[in-house]
């Protein structure tokens, strides 16, 4: 993956400032997120850690506007998320547990379809670019059904990156990737970060994700248990804390 660095981002690619105020999410009696207060400035690379069921996925899905909080507020650049125009989604990119890909279509057809939904100019060219960036060009004509989990994940990353969003939200993005592909993923994330974008990713492997991070969050049963700047310097401390939480 060639490093992508364009200091002058187009307006849709600028990173919004993110603000959570006493945000909670319930599923029936289950408290998934519990009165979170959090601010993320443009250009941060935040790693969200925590044991299973701590609320990482729910948090990322709420930030991606896929889910509504039960209580509290989510603000992007001081605008309540509920009142944002649809065009705002142009600035968000999200990779979840599922790939959001159509099995019966080829890699290229999937990406072209999403490029049309994002109303991208020069869609064909852009699809060609991300195919190269994610190193999946040789499989462009293969149906998604025939790909391995790791390759599907790379197509999912390509899908989220098509419109070059300013805020990237990734839920355990290294799932299914082999070690070289993981290394390339983190190179790409570092490049996104260098270009001034905000990146928020969840991870269960601090050794892999923290060296890049500018900030680490630890979620425990929906609460923000830890919020530390400069995680690379505190790797040991964070790992010990995560062990305790597990």
């Amino acid at each position: 993956m060639p490093p992508h660095a364009s200091p002058d981002l187009p307006p849709e690619a600028t990173s919004p400032r993110l603000h959570l105020r006493q945000l909670s999410k319930y599923f029936g009696r289950f408290v998934a997120l519990d009165r979170l207060d959090l601010e993320v400035q443009p250009g941060e690379l935040v790693v969200v850690l925590g044991p299973n069921g701590a609320g990482k996925t729910t948090l990322l899905r709420i930030l991606a506007l896929l889910q509504q909080p039960s209580e509290g507020e989510l603000l992007f650049d001081d605008q309540p998320a509920r009142r944002l125009p649809p065009a705002f989604r142009q600035r968000l990119g999200f990779v979840g547990h599922e790939t959001f890909l159509y099995d019966e279509l080829t890699v290229e057809e999937n990406l072209r379809f999403y490029a049309r939904l994002y109303a991208l100019d020069a869609a064909a060219q852009r699809v060609g670019e991300v195919l190269g960036e994610m190193d999946i060009a040789p499989r462009a004509r293969s149906p998604v059904r025939s790909l391995s989990r790791g390759l599907k994940q790379r197509v999912a990353l390509a899908r989220a990156w098509l419109h070059r969003p300013g805020l990237l939200l990734l839920d355990e993005p290294s799932t299914g990737l082999d070690p070289p592909a993981r290394a390339r993923l983190f190179d790409w994330l570092a490049a996104c970060h260098r270009s001034g974008r905000t990146v928020i990713l969840s991870s269960h492997d601090p050794a892999e994700s923290l060296p890049l991070a500018t900030r680490a969050l630890l979620l425990e049963r929906g609460r923000l248990a830890l919020d530390l700047p400069d995680p690379p310097a505190r790797l040991k401390e964070i790992e010990a804390r995560l062990q305790a939480a597990n």
Partner: peptide, 10 residues
Amino acid sequence: NQCLQGLRLA
């Protein structure tokens, strides 16, 4: 594959 969520992101 939860494609619907992919559509809702757009």
